[in-house]
Each structure stands twice: as C-alpha cells, then as structure tokens.
Design a protein around this nucleic acid. Sequence first.
DNA 1: GGGCCGAGCCAC
DNA 2: AAACGTGGCTCGGCCC
Length: 594
Amino acid sequence: MDYKKPPFEYISKQSRLTEVVNAELAKQSILAVDVESDGLDPHTLKLLLVQIGIPGQAFVINAKLDLAPLKTLLENPEILKLVQNGKFDYSALKVTRSIEMRNMYDTMLSERLLTVGMERENSLLSLAAKYTGVQLDKDWESLNWYAAAKSGKFSEAQLRYAAVDVVILFPIYAKQKEGLAKEKLETVAKLEFNLMPVVAEIEIKGSKIDVNKWRENLAVLSQRRDEIARQIQEELRPYFVVKQMGLFGQNTDVLNLNSPMQVMEAFRKLGIDIPSTGEAILAKVDHPVAKLLLKYRENEKLLTAFGENLLEKIHPKTGRIHPDFQQIGADTGRFACSNPNLQQIPTDSAFRSCFIPEPGYKFIVGDYSQIELRIMAELSQDPVFLNAFRNNDDLHTLTASQMYNIPREQVDKKMRFNAKSINFGLMYGRGANSLSIQLGVSFEEAEKLLAKYFATYKKVKSWLDKVGREAVRKGYSTTLSGRKRWYRESDPGDPGYLRAVSHIERQGKNTPIQGTSADMTKFALVGIYNALKDGKYDAFPIHTVHDEIVVEVREDQAEEVKEIVEREMVKSGQMLLKSVPVLAEVKVSNVWEH
DNA sequence: GGGCCGAGCCAC
DNA sequence: AAACGTGGCTCGGCCC
C-alpha cells in the first residue's frame, strides 16, 4: 500500500458516521486514532478532525459532527486503539467531547521503551521512516489548519495528511510489537500505556496555587535579596574604579552579581583566587562577601525560578497550573516535568504550602518511605539490610553502629550522618574520594569507612559491583518490572574511554534502583486512578514527584481515599519487592506538605 | 533578536 | 572544578 496516498473517506454527514461506525468500525479489534486541532492546549483548542484507521483504510471525520457513535468505540476496553503521543489525543477528546479513550497502544511511548539511552527520535516522521521506509511530509504549518478551523472546510491535502497519520500506525505497531516481545518489555509497556491517560488527567486537572500567599512570600525574598545585594556592592565598591557617577535613578552597581565571570573577577580584586564561584567553593571562602553572595544567590534563585514566572503559568480559563509531564522523561523511567517543573518546587513550606486544593477539598499526600534503600536491599538480598527493614530499625543508626563498632545507643549525630552519606552515596556509585570531601575526612579515612561498611554489607558490595560490570558488558540495565536502559558503546581508542566506562558503571548501579522506584510509583498511580475513577469518588491525582503522589479529594471522602492511596501504594510496592516491607506515609492535608 | 551552551542550583 | 545518579529553569555570554 502507498502509505502516502492511502484510501480514505471523508465523513461530514452525521448519518454516514453512524453507518460507518456500525458497518465498518464496530467489528474491528484494532483501531488507529488521531485528531487534528488548531492548537495544543486541550482547554482552548478547537477539534477539527478525528481520524479512525483500520488496516489499509482511513475515515476522516469532521469534528463538527456529534461524536457520540465514536465515543462507544473509543471507550470500549475490548478494542485496542493505536495512537502516537496519545496523551494529546486523549486530552483533546476528553476535554472537548468528554470521551475517555481506553486500551491504547502508544507508538511514541513504545519507541521510547525500545530505545531508551540509544536515541530519542520518537516523532511519527522518524517512526514511519524507521519501520516502513516511508518519508512522510510533516509540513503541518503549510496546511493552514487555522483557516480550516474558521471555515470548517478542508483541502484534499489536509484530509490526506490526516489519513496518513492513522494508516501508518498499523505497520509501526506490528514491528514494535515484535521488538517489545523480543526485549521482554511487554509488562512495562502495558504499565506505561495504562499510565498514559492518568498522566493526561493530571495535566488536564492541574494544580491550584494561592496567588496572594505566593506573592507575600516573594516580597519578603526580594526585600532580603536587595538588602544583601546592596551590602555586597558596598563592600566591593572600594575595589572598583567607578567609571560613571551615579546620577539620579542610575544604577551604581559595580558588578553584576549574577555573572560568574564578574564575581570571579571581584574575588581576584579581593586577593582571593577561586576555581569556580559554585556553592561548594564559596562555602569555604573565609570572607564576608562569600557568605553574602551565597545568601544572595539563594534568594535570587527562588525569586527567578519560582517567582512571578510561575504565576504566569496559571491558565486563564481554569485558574490552575497545567505543567507538561513527560512520562518517560528520564532514561531510568522516571517522569520529567516542565512548563513549569512542579517537581522542583522548593521543599520549604513557604513555597509548598501555597499549593492548595479547591475550597471544600483536601489533599492526600502519599510518600514511599526510604524506597530506594528498600529496593537496594531487595535487589542485593543483603541479609543485614533486609533484617533492618524487617525489624523497622533506623537503618542509618544501625549502619553507623556497625561501621564504628559501637552499640546503637552510642551513635551520635555525626556518625549517623556519615552512615547516611554512605548509604545514599553508594546508590549513586560514589567513591572514597567524593565521600572524603563530603565528610571532611582524608581519602584514607574515607576508604576505611567504606571498607568497614562493606565488611558488614557484603552482598550490597557484590551486587553493586555486579550490576556495574553487567551494564558495561551487556550494554543495558534492567529494573524489576523489566524496564531497560541501554548504554552507547564506548570506543577503547577514545581518550575519554575509562571515564565513559566508569560513568556507565555508576549508571548501572543506580538505574535498577531509581528505575524500579519509578515503576512502583507508576503502578501505584494506575491503581489509584482505577480505584477512583468510577463515579463513586470525587477525587483525582494531580501531581507526582518520583516517590510521591498527590490526590485532590472532596472533603467528606478524604479519609476513605487516604486508605485507597495507601493501599495502592503499598500494593504496587509489595508486588515488586518480595523480601522487604514497603511503607507509604499518607496524610490528609490542606496544603501540599507531608 | 533568536539559538545555543555552560554555570549554577532547585527537586528526588 | 570535580567529586555521586535523574531531571528542568534562568542567567550570562557568545554566535549568527
């Protein structure tokens, strides 16, 4: 078949739509689905076309029609729907037509799973080229959909373009399916496909922010920042030749505090040479300007990254913030979030407490407790680690008592901190050198601590070594749900070869842990969504931050939904971890805090 | 004026 | 400046 000129029928009459649905579509077990619109924001876009593909043919439906006949098909969980970036199609159909597509196979997510770490070419254009050899025209702009949106009339080129997008999904699906089977990625693919509508709903719903409180917060910060900036400029003024007199209203600053180059230069004038102006360096510089600069940066960072900019993201129509969640954003399987990134809102209560539910609603905030360490215990099967979690011991205190050969009661804060640093550092493939710097001890001392640690946790050591080596040898890592992450081969002739290999070893140690944590949270999100969605509850997930899930729920159902969130989080945890208890701390709250 | 990159720093 | 994994945002500084 000529995929660039597929047979298609344009449907603009209601009676014909009903006919086609009954005669052609209802008997299909697989449909390809796509929509065309005049924008990307589901809350404001106009739906123009809905395309339904069956093998070898497409139906291009004018969206001015009543789509009720299609709704039944699209919501039918028995019929598989092939989609490319289905999060968009799902959202557009949900918001504009209250259609909740079920049972989707997403070629974009599938491709991401099949190529994680190797490439990031997931567009329909590249998938078509890769799997069918067809070079699609993707000049979306030139087709002038905005004019079509106004007139309601579509050109032949537009209709053909729309048809191609669905028929091409069948051969891509067929090839990818083989790949998923070969790489044993079917379970994680199913997880991601089930998760996709949940992610769409989270984006559609968005998060509410208390604007006044946010602004009050900013006012305090900016006053503080300006005062600190003034002090720094005064301190440094004597060291600079002032080129211009500060006339009325003129900026008399001697340097731009946001410029690392200029800051470095300023310290040189003070007789202090520093290799970088980063926090780690400045913290060690014994000069009031260094201290002030760190305080300045802290306030400046909060003001710029989390200031008015964030409020500009409030949607004029919904009054809420709708970030973009990329469900396989990180190569480990974690989410990424942007526009704005609500996964990096400062933990400081001044910021987090500005995120609030609608009046009459509550938040349920659920967190996995020490989940990455529990996963490391499961994966390594280290008996000491396993026992600590089974006995609900304070792991870091226990570790310290073993490292320092003392009873637990004698472990002081410093010892516990050191033990904690090792526990966490190991999951990142941390070595003695970096440990010695963080702990402020000699390299030899750090080595001794590590040796002592590994003498107790022998299987942690052997597991870390093993998965690090395997990542290099096999060229990939796996998580407990079977998710994979590939590593690009390094060239032994390359000057950076050793560094590249040790980087892969560290990624190989971290990826099974971080990735399994992502799997777990994703299973929990799907479980929670399914438990909440069927009518009985006025509750919906609105946010997730790696090992945390936030649900917004009508007040009177808060306690009940809290139990559901806890149950589902623990259930998905225990599904993956068989040897370690999984705990989720779940709270009812009026603000986003735990 | 836009694109790109690195520095620096927020989260888990 | 990097040292320890995964991201995104803002800025300065440079290019065209």
